[in-house]
Design a protein around this nucleic acid. Structure first.
Length: 427
DNA sequence: TCTGGGGTCCTAGGACCC
DNA sequence: TCTGGGGTCCTAGGACCC
């Protein structure tokens, strides 16, 4: 049964371009939080040699030379456009797995194999017309091969015009293609595994596809064995159910500037916990424990380094922001050491389970718990209506000395009434 | 001066139990 | 002198992904 993998090209950059057509044809990049690293590049920026994940301050000279345009990341905008793309794609097949913000799998079984290419071209045109984003489609009989086909579609192999269907290749063509691509391009084969594969004389995808399955399993793991099977057309990875609840929720940020005081760290931890608790309630889950971590700046090698972390168990699983903050701050007080310059902090909610499934214990105060649910629901409702952060707990602070820098933020064209695009405005 | 954030899965090893 | 073994559960760490 064929899978399609639809992936937006240079997603964040394309989102910025969708609202500013003058950016078309120019080198454009989108930066990570604090304008730290390059996380999305237009083809023109790639051609200039800008690398993914490269610190922006190292590229600024090059950027000036070539007139590269940089944006701070605008996740509100990207999230909204992503939802539109996914919603359109869901109408093209009975089953969809949204794999990440910019890509999804579709189950194409039952469709006429001969017309898959033209069908997927129609998907591309619809997304382009309705959302203004370019996408590529890979089609193959396993998810791993569909990812690879998508890669080929992007590169224009076999004259692919944004769509590549491995079902149209015979064995000889596949072998030739696989022999021309290095194993590191495969989904699930990262840097470390590539290195180890090289020492085993496995360089290309074809080398990996024809490698001994048992040897791969013992040298690596069952994950690698599955990958090899998938390369041979044996499907091991099913389409995953949509809306599966997460197993952990992490919220962390680097600070805009260094922080030394416990008070400032506490504010950041309370703020991150608030965000995480909102996500938790959005999933309809409760957490059994919360981990807290604080880091100094690892790039400042001459400065004293300290990484602290701790996991605090809650007395009972909860989704109450106040209880989570209380636990997080008690953990923070234990790991905090004065005299260090902190660069980053974060929290992680663990032991997540559906709120309806928890076992009440003898000591649970059910009245208090239902009150807590009401308070949190009200807070969430107000924040949804009036904008994020309208109602927060005092612990999150108002000074927020640790807040990040985002000097190159584009407008929230689609999600904020005050920032809508005005027809005829000078761009 | 300036170096992201949020996830998943697997494995090894320790704790604990009988 | 000689000090079990197997199962389960949990956690930390490592690998990967976008």
């Amino acid at each position: 049964m064929p899978f399609a993998l639809i992936d937006c090209n240079n997603f964040y950059v394309s989102c910025e371009r969708a609202f500013q057509p003058k950016l078309e044809g120019k080198p454009v990049v989108v930066l990570s939080n604090n304008d730290g690293c390059v996380v999305s590049r237009s083809n023109e920026a790639k051609a200039l040699g800008l690398q993914m994940g490269e610190p922006w301050f190292k590229m600024e000279k090059l950027a000036k030379q070539h007139g590269i345009i940089a944006f701070s990341s605008n996740y509100t905008l990207y999230g909204d456009l992503s939802a539109r793309v996914m919603s359109i794609l869901s109408t093209f097949a009975p089953r969809q797995e949204v794999y990440s913000i910019d890509e999804c799998f579709l189950d194409l079984s039952g469709f006429d194999p001969a017309s898959l290419t033209s069908y997927c071209q129609k998907m591309r045109q619809t997304i382009q017309r309705n959302v203004g984003l370019p996408v590529c489609v890979g089609i193959a009989e396993t998810k791993t091969l569909a990812k690879l086909a998508n890669h080929c579609a992007k590169k224009g192999f076999f004259g692919a015009n944004g769509v590549c269907d491995f079902g149209l290749l015979d064995d000889t063509q596949r072998s030739a293609l696989f022999s021309s691509i290095s194993a590191g391009e495969i989904w699930g084969v990262g840097r470390r595994i590539s290195e180890k594969l090289l020492t085993m004389k496995i360089k290309t995808i074809e080398d990996l596809r024809t490698a001994n399955l048992e040897r791969m399993r013992s040298q690596f793991s069952v994950v690698m064995a599955r990958t090899v099977q998938e390369l041979n057309g044996v499907s091991c990875l099913e389409l995953e159910k949509v809306g599966k609840a997460r197993q952990q929720i992490v919220v962390s940020r680097s600070f805009g500037s260094m922080i030394t005081e416990l008070d400032d760290l506490s504010e950041s931890i309370a703020y991150f916990t608030t965000r995480a608790a909102e996500k938790l309630r959005g999933d309809g889950s409760v957490a059994a424990s919360i981990a807290v971590f604080i880091y100094t700046n690892p790039f400042k090698e001459d400065a004293p380094q300290y990484n602290g972390s701790i996991t605090v168990a809650l007395s009972h699983p909860s989704d109450d922001t106040r209880e989570l903050i209380k636990a997080a701050l008690s953990g923070l007080r234990e790991i905090y050491r004065s005299g260090f310059h902190y660069k980053k902090s974060g929290i992680q909610l663990m032991g997540l389970q559906g709120k309806g499934t928890i076992q009440p214990t003898l000591f649970d105060d059910t009245e208090k718990q239902s009150k807590s649910t009401t308070v949190m629901r009200t807070m969430d409702a107000i924040n949804r209506k009036m904008g994020k952060g309208s109602v927060t707990l005092a612990a999150s602070g108002i000074q927020q000395r640790w807040a990040m820098h985002r000097g190159r933020h584009s407008r929230n064209f689609t999600t904020d009434w005050g920032e809508l695009m005005v027809v005829g405005e000078d761009k």
